[in-house]
């Protein structure tokens, strides 16, 4: 029974460490996808002058999940209950960031960007997209750094902490 409990502790903590490292790995990937979706958005706005709804719909078909889900939601909500774009964007950003591992800074960047979306002429809009992209770039670097530095460590830390606790309790 004792041994079983010890094993359980080791297993759980290893698994936690593994999960944590997966999150660290996920974050730069997500930021990369967000960046490419903003780039698609820019092309849709500048070259084809598509409406935000069309653009979001097109983006959702071109990028992988879960970011595609976010854009699909925005497009659908705009279609069905047109309140204001910013309210929808805000709500969906909250929901999206809640479901994936993104820091509050990324969330803030997206929200700030949403406030400018669709409110300016093409030149201005393009500038705002570029600004958001620069911010995301910075965050991407940070996230990559974090992953590089702590990714492997966290995994082994989980295992070691598990072992430590198990030995301590035995």
């Amino acid at each position: 029974m004792k041994w079983f409990g010890a094993l359980l502790i080791v297993f759980t903590l290893t698994w936690l460490g593994y999960e944590w490292s997966k999150k660290l790995e996920q974050r730069p990937q997500l930021i990369r996808v967000l960046k490419s979706s903003l780039q698609i958005l820019e092309a849709e706005i500048v070259y084809s002058q598509a409406s935000i709804m069309e653009a979001c719909h097109n983006i959702s078909q071109q990028i992988p999940s879960p970011v595609s889900g976010f854009f699909r939601q925005v497009a659908q909500q705009l279609k069905h209950e047109p309140i204001s774009l910013y309210d929808i964007w805000d709500k969906e950003t909250d929901r999206f960031c809640h479901s994936v591992f993104l820091s509050s800074e990324e969330k803030e960047i997206m929200k700030q960007f949403g406030r400018t979306l669709g409110q300016h002429d093409i030149v201005q809009q393009q500038k705002y997209i570029q600004l958001a992209l620069t911010h995301l770039d910075r965050k991407l670097k940070e996230a990559e750094d974090m992953n590089y530095r702590y990714g492997k460590m966290v995994k082994s830390l989980g295992l070691l902490a598990g072992l430590f606790l198990a030995i301590l309790l035995l």
């Binding site: 706005i45 935000i52 204001s84 774009l85 669709g118 409110q119 002429d121």
Partner: peptide, 16 residues
Amino acid sequence: LLFLNRISEYSMYRLE
């Protein structure tokens, strides 16, 4: 502002 936004489908750049 909301009215203008709705006219442009929330995409003011289309009304340039």
